Amino acid sequence: MLPYLAATRSGLARALDATARAHLADGRSVDAVTALRSLLALSRRTGQTYVHARCVSAFAHARAEHRDAIVHAWERATGEGFPTFVYRFSGGE
């Protein structure tokens, strides 16, 4: 991948995370959902580990700090449950 494309994706992921956090801090959960949806879409489109990690972090923060507001806003906006991320690790022995 081209270095500038990777930097652009990383910067966009950071900006969307920061935007969601700022909206939540201001009590604007609907606007936070918009940023989180964009971040999730970016993560799915790029398949890049660092973008996915930023996405997981943003969703975890939103749920931990603003559980009721963000979960309800997400469900109203999408008609779906708030995303959870599950990892399965396998190690060679």
Rank of each mutant, 00 (worst) to 15 (best):
H61N: 12
V33F: 05
A64V: 00
A18V: 03
T34L: 14
G27K: 04
L42G: 07
E75Y: 04
D31W: 04
T46K: 02
H61F: 15
L40V: 02
D17E: 11
A6W: 11
A62S: 08
F59R: 08
A60G: 12
A77T: 11
S57N: 15
Q48W: 10
H66F: 14
Q48T: 02
R45N: 05
S29Q: 10
A53Y: 11
R67F: 13
R14N: 14
S43D: 02
L42A: 08
H61A: 14
L39C: 04
E93H: 01
G79A: 01
A53P: 02
A20E: 02
A25E: 14
T19Q: 10
M1S: 14
A7S: 10
R45M: 01
G81L: 06
L12Q: 15
L24T: 00
A58P: 12
R88K: 13
R54L: 13
F82V: 04
G79S: 05
G11N: 06
T49A: 08
P83A: 06
S43P: 00
Q48V: 09
V33L: 08
A22W: 06
L12E: 13
A62I: 02
T34E: 14
L40G: 05
T78P: 09
G47E: 00
E80C: 05
Y87N: 09
C55W: 00
R37T: 13
G92A: 12
R28W: 09
A73P: 15
L12C: 07
A62Y: 05
A18P: 05
D17A: 10
H61S: 15
L39K: 08
S43T: 05
A53C: 06
R9C: 02
S43M: 03
R76Q: 09
T84E: 12
S57F: 14
H52Y: 11
S90I: 07
G11S: 03
H66C: 09
S38W: 08
R67D: 15
V86S: 07
Y4G: 00
R63T: 10
L40E: 04
D31I: 01
V71M: 09
A41L: 07
A13K: 03
G79P: 04
A69S: 15
R63G: 08
L39Q: 06
R76Y: 02
L2Y: 12
